[in-house]
Design a protein around this nucleic acid. Structure first.
Length: 212
DNA sequence: ACAAGGATCCTCT
DNA sequence: GAGGATCCTTGTT
């Protein structure tokens, strides 16, 4: 069951919040809220991607598509995957360094009816457990790439409490990458929810990330 | 200008 | 567990 979250008083996260390495920022994003109009989602699963990482879109250097992940933190990087799915990343680290966090799953907080419309009338965790589903739920496309999430511009990231526990494991769907990178424990999920994709490869970690 | 391949999802077995 | 959908981005000719 989705957690009850009071988002009405939540404030936008400042740009400084995102100015960290992606593997540090990723678990801190768990429990934060994505808001687009009347839809509010609690982030439950993320993955970190880094500049020297062969799984990262920055592996081929700076290109028009991946330009946002080289830029300043706190902006969105949205790209089209398999010609169908629009995936949302949160840009991390400083300007000039490529780092981003992929939002892989969320839990509904508000706007569930709108979500069901956008997701073909389905219900339950299948609505939001997968990065393509998150993009669909927020009705995103690549025109949102580069959008500042720390400003009120139609899509923003609001503060929220961290999850009670955190799960960690390898990232999904990056078989093309170097085996050492595939093995990195750079996928993080909230341990207090069923709204997580591929939970079998995750394990609980004892010391959750500190609060901000 | 071309060919290859992808940070996925859904359906079927 | 396997395969097809679908189209843009990228690196190469």
């Amino acid at each position: 069951m989705p957690q009850k979250t009071d988002w009405s008083t939540a404030s936008p996260l400042p740009q400084s919040f995102f100015a960290r390495g992606s593997a540090e920022l990723a678990p801190l994003l768990l429990g934060k809220l994505l808001r687009r109009e009347d839809v509010v989602l609690r982030i439950t699963e993320v993955e970190a991607y880094e500049q020297e990482d062969t799984a990262c879109h920055a592996r081929s250097g700076r290109t028009p598509r991946n330009a946002p992940i080289w830029g300043p933190p706190g902006r969105a990087y949205v790209y089209l995957c398999y010609g169908i799915h629009d995936m949302l990343n949160v840009v991390a680290d400083r300007d000039g360094r490529a780092a981003a966090v992929l939002v892989r799953a969320c839990e509904p907080v508000a706007g569930l009816e709108r979500l069901r419309e956008r997701r073909g009338g389905r219900s339950g965790p299948t609505l939001l457990t997968g990065p393509g589903k998150v993009g669909s739920a927020l009705d995103l496309d690549v025109s949102w790439s580069g959008h500042a999430l720390f400003e009120d511009g139609g899509l923003e990231l609001l503060d929220g409490p961290p999850p009670a526990s955190i799960l960690v494991g390898p990232r999904i769907g990056i078989d093309y990458a170097d085996p050492a990178d595939v093995a990195l424990p750079w996928r993080f999920a909230a341990g207090d929810t069923d709204w997580v994709s591929h939970p079998k490869s995750l394990r609980r970690i004892h010391s959750p990330a500190s609060r901000e």
